[in-house]
Simulated assay, not measured.
Amino acid sequence: MALVTFLSEFGDKDYYVPAVKARMLSINPQLNIIDISHAIEPGDLEQAAFVLRSVFREFPKGTVHLVGINTVGVMTQGYIGVKLEEHIFIGPNNGILSLLADHDPGILVQFADIHLKDSTFPTRDILAPIAAKVASGAAIHDFGGPLTNFRKLMSRQAKATREHIIGHVIRIDRYGNLLTNIRREVFEKLNPGKFKIQFGREAVDRLQTGYDQVEPGDPFAFFNSLDVLEIGINHGHSGNLLGLKQDSVVYVHFGD
């Protein structure tokens, strides 16, 4: 199956998304194009990387992922193809693809000038044709040579000692729940049995396994399907109620 996922910051009010899809389908009408999201905030590489990192492994190996985020921004240093964990990513060299895993991709390709053109819409005019052709059987090496200047960004990491973990909110979902960068494996390694999780003016000393295990209006904390700590207020928008936002600090204190 020729499968392409599509992630962008284009929204759903303009012609941009269907124009990109039309360009790919004009090359191969049999493509199966799956939308990941087009609601990324413009230029928010961290948000886009979080969404893509959270879901790309759920697709079959060999899937081509088209990334149309900040493709004309000042950070973009050309356009590239990346092979990571048997998945192919086509996008700008602006650092977003470096945030998809804790290790470097196995293959990095800089697209050659012959495949580039002056465009105010490079996702449609440059990246979409390459994505469609790769999904149809071409290799990313067919479109360029080795990349020597892979742009890298560093994601914010939680800081941990035997006494505490200091993490941050990395995403507020549409329900107002707060996803953090505190990972289950780190918490479980350090947890002596007693702990307190503090976020804003709220604190909890036990973990739940779901949202409905506390009364409406009460705070909750659990490790979600991504194995990161999720916190919030049941039936409430935690960001608004607690004054928390992306990058707000979350503390875990161990012991009495």
Rank of each mutant, 00 (worst) to 15 (best):
S238W: 00
L52T: 01
H87N: 04
K159P: 02
I88L: 14
Y175S: 13
P60D: 11
G78W: 08
T5H: 07
A2G: 00
R171D: 14
A160K: 10
G78F: 00
R183G: 10
K83G: 00
H87R: 09
A160Y: 03
R184I: 08
S98T: 09
H253R: 14
D118T: 07
A132V: 02
T148Y: 08
F56D: 00
E58I: 07
D212I: 04
Y211P: 01
V17C: 09
Q198R: 15
R124W: 01
F59A: 01
Q47F: 04
S8I: 06
Y175I: 06
G200W: 09
V214R: 03
R184W: 10
I114Y: 06
G11F: 07
D44G: 08
K83R: 13
V64L: 02
V169T: 12
M75V: 07
M24P: 05
H141T: 13
F187E: 05
P146L: 03
I130Q: 02
R124Y: 06
V72E: 08
G176E: 08
E46N: 13
G11S: 08
T5K: 04
I166Q: 15
V74G: 03
L226S: 12
N94E: 11
N32K: 09
A139I: 01
I126N: 01
L190P: 04
K13I: 13
K83M: 11
K245T: 14
P146F: 03
P105E: 05
P192L: 10
S225Y: 09
V249P: 06
A49L: 09
L97M: 15
D227A: 14
S54F: 09
H237P: 03
I90G: 00
G217R: 07
A101H: 14
M24L: 01
K133W: 03
T209S: 13
K245F: 13
R162E: 15
A112E: 10
I170T: 15
I114C: 00
V109Q: 02
I40F: 05
I231S: 03
L100Y: 06
S225E: 13
L100R: 07
G137W: 10
T180C: 11
V186C: 09
I140A: 06
E202D: 11
G210K: 05
G200P: 01
A49T: 10
P60A: 11
G95T: 08
V51H: 07
H168E: 15
N70Q: 14
A22I: 05
G78S: 03
D256L: 13
V109M: 01
L241Y: 08
Q30L: 10
V20I: 13
V20T: 12
P146N: 04
D227C: 08
V228R: 02
I233Y: 03
V20R: 03
I27D: 03
I165V: 11
S37L: 08
Q208I: 00
Q110S: 06
P122A: 10
F121V: 11
G243K: 10
L147I: 03
S225D: 13
A132M: 05
V249G: 10
K152M: 09
Y175Q: 09
G62T: 06
F89A: 00
F111G: 00
H115K: 00
S37R: 04
T76D: 04
R201N: 12
T209R: 12
A160T: 14
F56L: 00
F6D: 02
F150Y: 15
T180L: 07
T5A: 03
T71A: 12
R174M: 12
G91N: 02
E58K: 14
S54V: 07
G217S: 08
G137L: 10
M1G: 07
V20N: 02
